[in-house]
Amino acid sequence: MTLFDIVLAILMLASHVAIVGAAWLCRKRSKAFLFLGALLIGWQWVHLAGQGVLASVVELPPMSEHLSFFPFSPLIVDAGGPGWRSVPNSTVRSFNLGLDLLRCALYAAVFALIARSLGKNRACDPSS
């Protein structure tokens, strides 16, 4: 482990703590801020898990039952070899696009929730 790794890890941890702290401070305005914080931090793990699943089914050995069940089974096609199966590039591209669409949909929903609750809070505020 180099000095660069340590500095990188400290900065990463600090940014995560800052996100959690800011989400906690904003929670009185809207509970959706907690979802936003969780999404900002948690999405990278979802993305990593998705990429891990994809990497594990890109090439499967003969007679392997590993991840050959639904919903992963549609990803796998015959590779042409004796019993070997693999995932074509177009499927990988579609999978990545689907993952990105899911990310965008979640962000759009959370931001819409925040806008809605901030608008509602302002309407209820007698001072405004």
């Binding site: 990188l8 990463m12 600090a14 940014s15 800052a18 401070l25 904003c26 900002l40 990278q44």
Partner: peptide, 20 residues
């Protein structure tokens, strides 16, 4: 990855500061 998280943190802290 680090730059992205620093940007997230800075913007979220700015939001928290505006509300406070």
């Amino acid at each position: 990855q680090l730059v992205r998280y620093v940007l997230y943190a800075v913007s979220f802290l700015l939001i928290a500061r505006s509300f406070k």
